[in-house]
Amino acid sequence: MSLRLLRMMVSDGLLALLRGRGLTAAALLIITLTFSVSALALLAAGNLAATVELNGRPGVFRVYFGEEAPDSEAVELARRLRHRDGIASVTVVRAGQARDDFLAAFPEMSAGVDLLVDNPFPPHLEVTVADAVASARRRELRAALGDEEGVVAVLGDDLWTRRLLELARLIRRAGLAAGLAFALAATLVVAGVTRLSLATRRDEIAVMWVVGAPRAFISGPFVVEGVVLGAGGALLAWAASWGVFRGASMLAEEHPLLGFLALAPLPASSVLFLVSCSVVAGTAGALLTVHQAARAH
C-alpha cells in the first residue's frame, strides 16, 4: 500500500468523522466512558498497591541481605545509613539474633528450625524513616535501599498489607477484564457507526465501486474512522484518569492527613493496554461491517 493511499484514507476518514460530528461525539462518549471504568480501576489498583507497600509498617523498612551475607555487611550499611537525610534510626538484626527472635515468638517451632541446614534468618536492618519525610521521598528512599550492595529485598510487610496487596491485584485484574469486555462493546459501537456511515454514503460508494475504485480506497476511510474512534476513546479515558490523579495529588498536598498516599498516574503499560484494546476494537468493528457490505456487492 502506497503512502499516498494511506494518507488519502486517513484524510477521508477524518473528514467523514467531521461530517458526522454528532454521531462521532456520541460514539466517542460511549467508548470513553466505558474505557474510563477500566482506566480508573487500573489507576486505583496501582495506587493502592503503592500506598500499601509504602505504609506496610509505617515508617519502618526491613532491609534484607542474602543468605550468605556476613553480619559485617549489614553493620557497614547501617553505619552509612545513619548519616543519611530522612532516616531517624537504623537497627541491625544479626543472623543469630533473627533466629532467636523467631524462636522466642514461636517456641514450638524450635525442632524444625534446628533441622535446617541453611540459615533461613539472614541478617537485616530495620530502618526507621523520619516522620517529616513525605511519601514520594519515602519511595525514593526505599528504592535507594534496594540498590545498595548486598541487599536482596526491602520489605514493609504485615498481614493486612498482604491482604490489601491482594485486593489491589484483584482490582487490577478486574480493570483488565473490564478493558477486554469494553473492547467488545467498543467493537459493537464502532460497527454501528460504520453501518450508519456506510448507509449515508451508499450512493457514493456504489459509484466508486462501479468505476473501479480499489477496495482499500473505498473501505480504508471507514477503518480509519474506527481506529480514530477507538484510540480517541481510550486516550480520553486516559486523560480522565490523569485528571483524577491530578485531583487526588492536589488534595493530598493540601491535607497532611493524606500524606500517606503513594500517588502515581496510570503506568505506560496500562495506557498501552487500553489503547491497544480500543484500536483493535475499532479496527475490528469497522472491518466487520465493511466486509459485510462488500460481500453484498
Binding site: 465501486w209 462501479v210 468505476v211 473501479g212 475504485a213 480499489p214 477496495r215 462488500a294
Partner: peptide, 12 residues
C-alpha cells in the same frame, strides 16, 4: 477476482 474486476474497470 474482485480486485481484477476493479482494475479492469479502472481501464475503462
Amino acid at each position: 477476482a474482485v480486485s481484477q474486476v476493479q482494475r479492469l474497470r479502472r481501464r475503462m
